[in-house]
């Protein structure tokens, strides 16, 4: 998708694999079975976490990159 010109934020947990296979825009998440969630947080905090992940993804697709780049959610803004 990136090659075809669509900037794509990859939200995933195994970021080392994503980097190794060359995904350009990577948003680290917390678990393989729940890329946009974290069941340990409780409903309200989990929704806030998901929102931050999506916001980070939007920042990623609006940022120029030249190689696999991580866009982690900043801890303070969780």
């Amino acid at each position: 998708m990136e090659r075809a010109g669509i900037p794509t934020a990859l939200l995933c947990n195994l970021t080392s694999i994503a980097e190794r296979v060359g995904a350009p825009r990577i948003v680290p998440t917390r678990g393989i079975p729940y890329p946009t969630g974290d069941p340990s947080l409780g409903a309200e905090k989990e929704r806030a976490w998901r929102r931050r992940l999506v916001e980070r993804g939007l920042e990623a697709v609006a940022t120029a990159v030249h190689k696999p780049t991580l866009f982690p959610v900043d801890r303070e803004t969780e």
Partner: peptide, 10 residues
């Protein structure tokens, strides 16, 4: 050993 479902625990 388990195979955890997230990178941190792996």
């Amino acid at each position: 050993s388990p195979e955890p479902v997230d990178a941190t625990n792996k």
